[in-house]
Nucleic acid binder design. Structure first.
Lengths: 187, 187
DNA sequence: ACCTGAACACCGTTCAAGT
DNA sequence: ACCTGAACACCGTTCAAGT
């Protein structure tokens, strides 16, 4: 039920809903923006929102979709690129920036990672795939230890993003990422 | 308002509330256990719960209090102990076990870390103090890099606890902690 | 001094009734 | 084919009224 509707009023409502969700994510965070808030802001009834999106994860997936696709294309670019010494860290840094874009995103992703067939879970899986390619290349280049898996790296980076977004003081993600990448180097 | 009340019925109610909260934390997690649930389970009205505890953080502080004190005494013991090669990691592991005892605790701590005068925030601060002593000693023993702060270590360990508690597959905390401690070693 | 439970504004979620 | 908004059970939180 998340695709483009046929009727023009439905399409317009859908667009308004996504717009409203985006604005609310910006203002109060992805966690605090309630379904009713989003519908109200879009000027439609709650039923209309639920008709367009099966749950809040679907709304979130729509709001962050382009940015997530950006992560995938960045991974592809880095994979075809010259393979600089910090290309993996560059991508990890982009992932953190993505997650910390809206407050509460880390928790949304953590929950979505469970059911892989949800709209958000599927996209998370795609990101993991992208990360797997990068980790493999970094491994072959001897930049990370041979036993490091993409899943482990994603978990660590997501964890850093979470602590950055939830715990003061802010702007410590870079330093924590440094420590993580130190621990991930070949022995 | 969180101390021991004078009247015996109030004391009994307080004890029942803490008991009910503990049971619900066990069954549904610290996040999903609602204030109304706790009051209902204790057989009292919601007003009674709110009279005994100013907010949910205070309830949480009461439920995890003894376990938190255990972390402090463990830190003291390790500080007086022989200083084995992994004493800091031992404590970090205990911290993770503590946080993952109830689902949703990591988020509670992250929120409490902000307002240091809240019942839970104060206890978090005490834990940080304990960690500071351990990190200092580990630094002097050359077990961790000289520029590592206790705050950074706590953030990393809490982050690992969070990802362990929220993201499948489970039981990866040990491995992630290995990587963290690898990254924290002197260069 | 403490408890009670009704009350308020909200939330997620559904669904009959409309156009 | 899609929208509407009332409705349900819940939530956090408060507070007059009781004992």
């Amino acid at each position: 039920m998340s695709g483009e509707p046929k009727r023009s009023d439905a399409r317009r409502n859908r667009a308004r809903l996504v717009e409203a969700a985006e604005a609310l994510f910006d203002e109060v965070g992805a966690d605090a923006a309630s379904m009713n808030d989003i519908a109200r802001r879009a000027g439609v009834g709650p039923g209309t929102l639920w008709r367009h999106f099966p749950d809040k994860g679907a709304v979130t997936a729509e709001v962050v979709g382009q940015s997530l696709d950006g992560l995938a294309t960045l991974a592809a670019e880095l994979l075809e690129g010259p393979g600089t010494r910090d290309f993996l860290r560059q991508w990890a840094s982009a992932l953190i920036r993505h997650i910390t874009r809206y407050r509460g995103l880390a928790a949304s992703y953590a929950q979505a990672a469970g059911n892989a067939d949800s709209p958000l879970g599927a996209r998370c899986h795609a990101v993991e795939e992208a990360a797997a390619g990068l980790v493999r290349r970094a491994r072959e280049a001897g930049q990370v230890r041979a036993d490091l898996t993409a899943s482990e790296l994603i978990r660590l980076v997501t964890a850093v993003a979470w602590v950055e977004e939830t715990t003061p003081p802010p702007d410590t993600a870079g330093r924590l990422l440094d420590l993580v990448f130190e621990g991930v180097r070949p022995r």
